[in-house]
């Protein structure tokens, strides 16, 4: 399936990736090639086949719903590009 400029711009927006206008056509071409190559799956009949969910049938483990970690806010924000008063800081969202 071919995707056009507008579609690429829309997915880039959804993915929150800035794509310069001048790159849209080239990306549309590349993505269309990949998607039309993927398209060969449609020739396969998968009626009644359940989607694979795990490699070996294992029951997902459960643990007690209790706090087992935490208490070190300094470590949590140590890598933040910007932190203020123990919080992650971002540009103003509400005026």
């Amino acid at each position: 399936m071919a995707v056009d400029r507008a579609t690429v711009a829309r997915i880039a927006k959804l993915a929150r990736i800035r794509v310069p206008e001048r790159d849209l056509d080239a990306l549309a071409g590349e993505l269309s090639n990949i998607l039309s190559w993927i398209e060969q799956l449609s020739e396969l009949d998968t009626e009644g086949v359940a989607p694979m969910t795990s490699v070996v049938a294992v029951e997902l483990p459960r643990r007690a719903d209790a706090v087992t970690d935490g208490g070190y806010p300094d470590k949590v924000i140590a890598n933040a590009p910007e932190a203020v008063h123990g919080f992650f800081a971002v540009p103003k969202v509400i005026e």
């Binding site: 799956l41 449609s42 396969l44 998968t46 086949v49 359940a50 989607p51 694979m52 969910t53």
Partner: peptide
Amino acid sequence: KARRVRSL
């Protein structure tokens, strides 16, 4: 679809 193919 891909996950079904994965099962196969």
